[in-house]
Design a protein around this nucleic acid. Structure first.
Lengths: 104, 104
DNA sequence: TTGATACTTAAGTGAATGATTAACCAACAG
DNA sequence: CTGTTGGTTAATCATTCACTTAAGTATCAA
């Protein structure tokens, strides 16, 4: 999941897809690399659940699955707020001990 | 940044640090790997800005920088909500054409 | 001083990644 | 049917990753 977002090319693809669905070659167009390379990146994004795609005729159309993205988002958010709470408690302790040397 | 969170060992370290600061060997303890390996992971986390650390005597104490984490969080959030808005507009279009969604 | 503790650095290795080219398949278009 | 477009598969290759071991550097403790 984070693995999938680790590569800049893949983040570029997600960024493109966040503005609307796209075919494989549309995804490839701004990406200075061969089509097979794009396919491999697409496979990683699909495996991670971030992107879904279906083929109609000869063109495969890709789009984002927002649920998968929010999974990563909540993981980060939980760790971040956990730490923020710790800092708050530390602030409380310092405020409760005004005689402490480091209150400047 | 996402690169840094891509590895499970590194996510484990972040998880541990979100509950409070820790020394290098405290971070290493639950991690079935050698100390140098942990140091390398720590270096990646520090390079990405997720973790800060300082050495006092012979023990290096590590802690999270919540700002770095929220950077990744907002990136994901922006892409996710952008797509959600698209889905909303699609819903509007379908609701505005109750006779047949497929007007070609 | 001697020894243990807590890292740190350096060097090396096997596996995973990110890319390539070449060839192949399946719709259309004419 | 024939050629072109859009995608797919397969084989290959260089690099980067995630470790490892071995040896080195500071503290701290006795």
């Amino acid at each position: 999941m984070f693995q999938a977002l680790a590569d800049p090319a893949r983040r570029g693809m997600v960024e493109r897809l966040s503005r609307g669905p796209a075919s494989v070659s549309e995804l490839a167009q701004p990406l200075a690399m061969s089509l097979p390379a794009v396919m491999q990146h697409l496979a990683v994004l699909e495996a991670s659940g971030i992107v879904r795609s279906q083929k109609v005729g000869r063109v495969r159309t890709c789009q984002i699955d927002p649920d998968a993205l929010s999974l990563a988002e909540t993981w980060i958010n939980e760790r971040r707020t956990l730490w923020a709470k710790r800092l708050d408690r530390l602030g409380d302790v310092l405020a409760a001990n005004p005689d402490n040397g480091d209150s400047k």
